[in-house]
């Protein structure tokens, strides 16, 4: 058979496949509900695939081969479309995969030790004015201390309008900072610096406010107690996620460097998702509960409650158990599954 004849025979199928691709790209086209169209599409796709694989044998002209490559590529990306996040999968991911992978992640532990270590150290230094005079003033700057004292001068009494506005602001501002901390993870230093900076500055503020000669301390703790647990954990987690990304670049564990980076990004994902969730919860607490004039005992019990919640999430749900391990080993979502054939093949 001459090539031109062959091309003529096939061309109609190709054009039809192309038109179907066009139709599929229009998202409102109810294609997936029509079985016969789908089977026609896959038949045409298979035919085009066969044509492409036979192109060498039949000596098709190079432009036709190029055309076929594009056509098959187009049809391929329509046939195997991206899957959306089903809600049930999200629940499973956040309640099973995320705590498990956070619990076993050494980077989370390191970030927590660094953050809360620096926080405590800085708080102690700022608190003991007698032993370390001027520490808080040097870390925070006297201007900022004045500003802080001013903002906690009056007892807390917000109104609804302010609560709503401020919670929106906290969501935008704080979560953005957390996500930035994560995004700069591959460059390692910015992420670590942000973590250390936050630990030292927040610790110094807490320490300074604990001093007995600072009158605004009471109001300060009225404000920060409720949301502190969520917020501080979220800060540490976002930096841990960034750290996990950066570590993937040099601790490759026998993989190719780029492949290890990719795998560690997958491992960082549950951490940053949890962090975003915590930032949201912190923002709403900070917006509504913290500035309210409710008695301190309510806020303190909320802090205890939220600590318990986090303990449950990270320790009870996260503690490795054989039956969960078995499920996770099967699960495609688990980034810590054993590196098997899939990775060895690449």
């Amino acid at each position: 058979m001459r090539i031109a004849e062959l091309l003529e025979k096939r061309r109609q199928g190709w054009v039809e496949l192309e038109n179907m691709c066009d139709a599929l790209q229009r998202s409102n086209y109810p294609f997936h509900k029509k079985g016969n169209l789908v089977s026609r599409f896959s038949a045409l796709y298979r035919a085009a695939c066969t044509d492409l694989s036979m192109a060498d044998q039949y000596q098709l002209p190079p432009t036709t081969v190029e055309y076929l490559h594009r056509l098959v590529g187009r049809a391929h990306s329509q046939l195997y479309r991206s899957r959306q996040f089903p809600f049930r999968k999200w629940i499973y991911y956040m309640s099973v995969v995320a705590p498990q992978s956070i619990f076993r992640d050494i980077c989370v532990k390191v970030a927590f030790v660094v953050f809360f270590g620096l926080f405590t150290l800085s708080a102690l230094l700022a608190w003991s004015e007698g032993n370390f005079p001027g520490f808080a003033e040097r870390v925070l700057g006297s201007e900022q201390i004045e500003q802080m004292e001013q903002s906690f001068d009056k007892p807390l009494a917000g109104n609804f309008d302010r609560y709503v506005t401020m919670s929106g602001y906290y969501i935008k501002h704080n979560t953005s900072i957390g996500l930035q901390c994560f995004a700069l993870g591959p460059l390692i230093l910015p992420s670590l610096c942000a973590l250390g900076y936050n630990g030292v500055v927040l610790g110094a503020s807490f320490g300074y406010m604990t001093r007995s000669d600072v009158e605004q301390g009471d109001v300060f703790f009225q404000f920060v107690t409720a949301h502190g647990v969520f917020e501080l954990t979220a800060i540490a987690l976002s930096a841990a996620a960034g750290l996990r990304l950066g570590v993937g670049l040099f601790a490759t564990g026998g993989l190719k460097r780029l492949e290890s980076f990719r795998l560690n990004a997958e491992r960082a994902l549950p951490i940053i998702m949890t962090s975003v969730m915590l930032f949201f919860m912190a923002a709403f607490t900070e917006g509504f509960l913290s500035p309210s004039s409710l008695p301190y005992i309510v806020k303190a019990s909320f802090a205890v409650f939220s600590s318990g919640l986090l303990m449950y999430y990270f320790v009870v749900l996260g503690y490795p158990r054989p039956e969960i391990d078995e499920i996770l080993e099967e699960s495609e979502d688990n980034p810590w599954r054993k590196i098997g054939i899939e990775y060895a093949a690449r």
């Binding site: 479309r81 899957r83 995004a183 997958e266 994902l269 979502d333």
Partner: peptide, 15 residues
């Protein structure tokens, strides 16, 4: 095609 995880990672790392 890309899945949700990949879309999340590549967009968060834009910065």
């Amino acid at each position: 095609p890309i899945n949700g995880y990949q879309a999340t990672v590549r967009n968060f790392l834009r910065l």
